[in-house]
Amino acid sequence: MNHEIPGDAAWSVPVRAGRTVTLTALADGANATVLIIGADRLDRLNIPDTLKSQMSARIKPGMVLMSDRGLALATVIASTLDWHDCLTGALPDRLLLLELTKHGFGEADLHGCIHFFSKVAVADDPRASLAYVPDHAHAGDTVTLRADQDLLIFVSTAPHALSDGPAAGVAVQLESPSHVEDPVLREEAVRALRLTRELIA
């Protein structure tokens, strides 16, 4: 299935384990803020655990997105960009909250999210100062995730909180490939995938 989310909108979609989700920027400067909730409808994407177990301050291909309780939610299989911001939060977003509410969730479930297609550069100064990079994503840029358990994925196309550019649309394509090879992963990510496959996938 293929769905185009216009700019400044929100959408949610269930994704079965094994399926892939490809997000495509429909204009320069697009942003897709994504929250993920796992199969048991409680276990959320945990950005700090995802980052510290893979020694990264950004989301890039070859990373497993990990849950609060140490399971693999999804694997970043491929992307035309090697930096997706996850450090700068989203402004309160009424439409995203409504999508959560549709599935029985609420404000308490808001957690760190990924801002696909956005980059906020980190300076090597004493505070690790941040600066939004305005020319990072271009129309046609993509990122593909493989669901490693049954997921609910929430997407907001509100502009990045540090951007002063216009909102842009994002296309979401769901596919059911027979098998998706694991990318090269760190040992921690392999462990999360193995546990997830043993327990629930």
Binding site: I47, T88, G89, P92, E107, R127, L130, A161
Partner: peptide
């Protein structure tokens, strides 16, 4: 954490850092 980081445009916390809530 991430709203706090964004509002101060810096990753580390120290004197002067405002600790921000989910409702800003």
């Amino acid at each position: 954490a991430f709203d706090t980081i964004r509002e101060q445009r810096a990753v580390f916390l120290t004197t002067g850092s405002r600790l921000i809530s989910t409702r800003l």
